[in-house]
Design a protein around this nucleic acid. Structure first.
Length: 306
RNA sequence: GCCUCGGUAGCUCAGUUGGUAGAGCAGUAGACUGAAAAUCUACGUGUCGGUGGUUCAAGUCCGCCCCGAGGCA
């Protein structure tokens, strides 16, 4: 079979998970989660991880593959998922990538290079320096990257300097080398679209459901198991707000409204990411059943105009 | 009824000795190549509660009225 990925992306709470399951049932596929937080064990409710029941017997990969204390990255995700995807293709199973982490999707479907491993010590050292100094330093070694990156974007400025210090090649040079290679897989991207107000209302409702389903206890358990506030997993929306409430810094009501707000802000960032990606085919989800939506996606895949 | 403190952007509030107003958050738009649910950027005209007055000029001073909070009867 042709090794082409089907990708279901789009903002949080748009209905991706259920749609991915339906799609897999129709095309003989397996869901491959592409979500930077669902890969942590013990983070279920707050990440809206599909339940056993919601999976409806469809295999789901890349859920619960890391401990919450472990750090992940787009590169690490790619290393973990590549063999799994290849295995499905061998078996004649169509992988359906499903998730909202745009960078992770691009790590598989675009020729991004992740060849230069990060160096925590070097980063920590560079981060001590003033922003201006860092940006000037970058301008001296890689003017193109310096021009592209804002002085306040310390994270990326540091990364660009790091690449040069570790390899002697500028990030700009490295990126053009990477782009000469093909992406891991060709892909067809789909995203579910909603009017903004409807999406925000779905987010608010889902947060209330999460609280009802025991999100607070989930966060308590993670903290009791020694997960530190500073870890990647604790940066997840919902977890950081509830942790604040548990520490007494804010009330639980405040935490819930902050959580809703943070989720809406996140959805907006995802919308920006995916609408700027010309490959994405948007499928309206408003007032349509899952099967109508998957019909449209399948017709599109088969080259029929709906 | 009297006294005090408030009433300024969707919200929380700044506003120096009078020169027609500005922050944070929200919102909107954008960026994103080993932290990405992270990180970063841009965008701020609103009967300054209402109304009279003083003044060349009032969010700012004075009178009255309305609304809110508190106190005293």
């Amino acid at each position: 079979m042709e090794r082409k990925l089907i990708v279901l992306c789009g903002p949080t709470a748009s209905g991706k998970s259920a749609c991915a399951v339906d799609l897999c049932r129709r095309v003989g596929g397996a869901v491959v989660s592409c979500d930077s937080m669902q890969l942590y064990r013990g983070m279920d409710i707050g990440t809206a991880k599909p339940t056993e029941g919601e999976m409806r017997g469809i295999p789901h990969l890349m859920l619960d593959v890391l401990e919450p204390g472990e750090a992940c990255s787009a590169a690490r995700y790619r290393e973990l998922v590549l063999p799994l995807i290849d295995q499905r293709f061998e078996q004649g199973v169509q992988p359906v990538l499903c998730g909202g982490t745009g960078l992770y999707i691009n790590a598989l479907t675009k020729p991004l290079g992740f060849s230069i491993k990060g160096d925590d010590a070097l980063r920590a050292e560079l981060e001590q320096l003033p922003r201006k100094t860092l940006h000037d330093m970058l301008a001296g070694i890689d003017p193109a990257s310096a021009a592209r990156l804002h002085m306040n974007d310390t994270r990326r400025v540091v990364r660009a300097i790091e690449v040069y210090k570790l390899t002697g090649k500028t990030l700009t040079e490295q990126m053009s080398l990477d782009q000469a290679r093909p992406a891991d897989y060709p892909a067809r991207l789909f995203a579910l679209s909603w009017p903004r107000e409807r999406l925000y209302a779905r987010i608010d409702a889902r947060v209330d459901e999460m609280i009802g389903a025991g999100l607070v206890n989930e966060v308590k358990n993670l903290l009791n198991n020694g997960l530190s506030i500073g870890s990647t997993a604790m940066q997840a929306i919902g977890y950081k707000e509830i942790a604040q409430a548990l520490s007494g810094a804010i009330s639980m009501d405040e935490a819930v409204s902050l959580l809703k707000q943070a989720t809406r802000n996140y959805a907006k960032r995802q919308l920006t990411w995916f609408t700027q990606d010309a490959r994405v085919c948007w499928v309206s989800a408003e007032d349509r059943s899952i099967s109508e939506i998957t019909d449209e996606i399948i017709n599109n895949l088969e080259g029929k105009t709906r």
